[in-house]
Amino acid sequence: MVAFARVNHADYRVETTSRLAQWRVDNFGFSYRKSDPFVIGKWNWYLVLEKNRKLVIKLYPELPKLARDFPPIASFNIRVVSLLGGRKTLVHPEVKDKQFKSGEAFVWALEVPLTGRFIVDVEFLDLKITSPNGGVSCSIWSEGLTEKSSISTALTSLGKMLSESIHTDITICASNGTIEAHRAVLAARSPVFHSMFSHDLKEKEMSVINISDMTIEACQAFLSYIYTNIEHQDFIKHRLDLLRAADKYDVLDLKDTCEESLMEDIDTKNVLERLQSASMYRLPKLKVCCIQYLVKFGKIYDIREEFNAFIQSGDRDLIGEVVNEILSVWKGF
């Protein structure tokens, strides 16, 4: 009888968020191991461990035949975190605009011997598609919002109504300026505005709405979204203001769009702010994503001071959820 080694499929699985990949290696006793494919952006990626004199880590995408002329260009941070003896971390310098042509991989040969349990952590900062004919390569993560906006004549004209103040009938007063708009458009996009203009409220008789909790720039971005002509960079710049406005005026599609966008670029600098926004505005997917980033992916160790401050002043129920997740993860060790 031939005995076969038992394969633990978890040893090959890479956990991911939209931009972060983590491979938890519990027992690397061989000279070679290749991960299962994991999706980041538009590609399947693989991590490979090779051990000879040194431990070598490789990262590369799977390129279909039809896409080999347009390989990804990636910027990323990669590090290895030892889970033994005080959580030692080895960090590779930031990789900037690495083009992954067919058959090519990023290779990192570790100078320090590593044994036992460790995590390979890859945080993608940007992904681009190689442009044909040597043109400018654009980030895949700058696409989406503006592409989804219809380019029909009707929607273009709607945006023109706002930008050129064509037959406006309402003035919106922001904290530092005013914008002209249209009651019908606002009422069609927001149940709150519809109620203002339909019932016996002062706004029904007045030609002014006060939105003093928004700057003129944020208010302009909010109206631009409502009128379907918002620019992507304006959306990104004012996401949190737009989230507050979407919640206040019950613009559900904007709220969903903000949640999806805020999930895409979570990092150690913004994760606690976004976690609190997720709790405040009832965004369950963003909350789960933030808690996983902190606990499951171990980023809580990178922001200990900030997290301690959050523990002192944050919402008790929210802190409880994070602590419960920490305890749940610890049970797995």
Rank of each mutant, 00 (worst) to 15 (best):
L155P: 00
G135F: 03
L145M: 11
G134W: 04
T156Q: 11
C138N: 15
T130A: 14
N133T: 06
E123D: 14
G134I: 03
T153K: 15
L155C: 04
S139Q: 07
K148W: 07
C138Q: 13
N133R: 11
G144D: 00
S152L: 09
L125R: 15
T156H: 12
C138R: 15
I140P: 01
K128D: 00
I151A: 11
T146F: 05
E123V: 10
D126E: 12
P132I: 03
W141N: 04
N133C: 08
D126R: 02
G134A: 10
L125E: 12
F124P: 02
I129W: 01
F124A: 02
S150K: 10
I140T: 03
K128P: 00
F124K: 00
C138L: 15
L127S: 04
D126H: 02
P132H: 05
D126Y: 00
I129S: 13
S152R: 14
L127D: 01
L155A: 01
D121W: 05
A154N: 07
I151S: 14
E123G: 11
W141D: 03
T130N: 03
L145N: 05
D126Q: 04
T153P: 05
I140R: 02
I151V: 11
W141I: 02
S137V: 01
S149D: 05
A154Y: 08
K148C: 06
S131D: 08
S150W: 07
F124I: 15
S137G: 03
S157H: 11
A154D: 07
S139R: 02
S152C: 14
G135K: 12
C138A: 13
C138F: 15
T153D: 12
E123Q: 15
S150H: 12
I151N: 14
N133E: 06
S142H: 10
L125S: 13
V136W: 07
S142I: 09
K128R: 15
E143H: 13
T153H: 11
G135P: 02
F124V: 15
L125Y: 08
G135R: 12
L155N: 07
T146N: 06
G134H: 08
S137I: 02
E123Y: 13
T146I: 10
A154T: 10
S131K: 06
V122D: 02
C138T: 15
G135M: 08
G134T: 05
I119Y: 05
L125A: 14
F124H: 02
S142Q: 08
K128A: 01
G135A: 10
A154G: 04
S150P: 07
S152H: 06
F124D: 00
F118T: 03
D126S: 07
G144F: 00
S131I: 02
V120C: 06
L127F: 12
T146P: 01
G144E: 00
T146Q: 12
D126T: 03
S150F: 08
P132M: 06
V120P: 02
S150E: 10
L145E: 09
T130C: 10
T156R: 14
I119N: 09
I151T: 14
K148T: 07
D121C: 13
C138H: 15
K148Q: 09
S157L: 13
E143W: 11
S150D: 14
L127E: 04
L145Y: 09
A154K: 09
T156L: 09
T130G: 00
L125C: 08
K148S: 13
L127H: 04
